[in-house]
């Protein structure tokens, strides 16, 4: 497929899908905006999946957003080698826990019968897309460093050109395969996002980040509920 389709058409298709479907879904079935947690069904592996994944992805996505919004400050920070290495190692560390968490989540979905039953096709697709996304991002960081700098120099101008509706693919066309895979897969994720449980990202109460875990107690009598009548 040619670069124009991948980097000047696909992003718009994905973004249009993202906005129209998320808004439509919120208007028509607002209560479907949920992460559909399966923590009730299994909570030990769940901890090692969910916690590292979420803290990892928040920091990594924050880094991408920073490079897009304040590229000059980022390049200034990276102009001292020690600072550059500190930033890259931090990114790498959080990316690794994202991958650890994601792999744990996927293993749990396969291995635990109760959890597998409540797993839908869209969940499997989103796990596959996320796995490609996180793995390709890690490989870019290892094989094509320093992404924090060249994101600011190459990716940001391209993303800005998309934002101002005059896409210029020349910034991304010469990038290596892994980087292109990471970009294309990101837009596939964005396009598929509104059809999945990932929409919980848009409604998450922020205090979830620091509130204590909830203890759920069943409010019914087990003996009566189990009896046939």
């Amino acid at each position: 497929m040619n670069d124009f389709f991948l980097f000047a058409v696909l992003p718009y298709v994905s973004l249009v899908l993202f906005f129209i479907v998320t808004i439509r879904r919120y208007i028509s079935t607002a209560f479907s905006y949920s992460s559909l947690s399966s923590q009730f069904l299994e909570n030990r592996q769940h901890f090692w999946g969910s916690v590292p994944f979420h803290y990892g992805i928040l920091v990594v996505l924050g880094g991408h957003l920073g490079a897009f919004l304040i590229p000059r400050s980022l390049l200034w920070w990276n102009s001292v080698p020690v600072r550059l290495v500190a930033l890259e190692v931090t990114g790498m560390g959080f990316a690794v826990i994202t991958l650890v968490g994601l792999v744990m989540i996927i293993i749990r979905r396969f291995a635990n019968n109760k959890v597998r039953v409540v797993t839908t096709i869209s969940d499997w697709i989103i796990y596959a897309l996320l796995l490609v996304q996180v793995a390709s991002g890690l490989m870019v960081a290892v094989y094509h460093g320093w992404g924090s700098s060249w994101f600011a120099t190459n990716m940001t101008p391209w993303l800005r050109s998309l934002l101002f509706f005059s896409p210029d693919v020349s910034f991304v066309a010469p990038l290596p395969f892994l980087a292109k895979l990471h970009i294309v897969n990101a837009f596939l994720l964005i396009g598929f996002f509104p059809f999945t449980r990932l929409v919980h990202v848009l409604v998450v109460p922020n205090h979830y980040l620091w509130r204590r875990t909830q203890l759920v107690r069943w409010n019914w009598d087990r003996k009566t509920i189990r009896s046939p009548d």
Binding site: W48, P52, Y55, T90, M92, G93, V96, I97, V100, V142
Partner: peptide
């Protein structure tokens, strides 16, 4: 060495 430092940080975080 870069990858190893990243893995070290990840283990610490866990």
């Amino acid at each position: 060495p870069f990858l190893l430092m990243g893995l070290g940080l990840a283990a610490t975080l866990l």
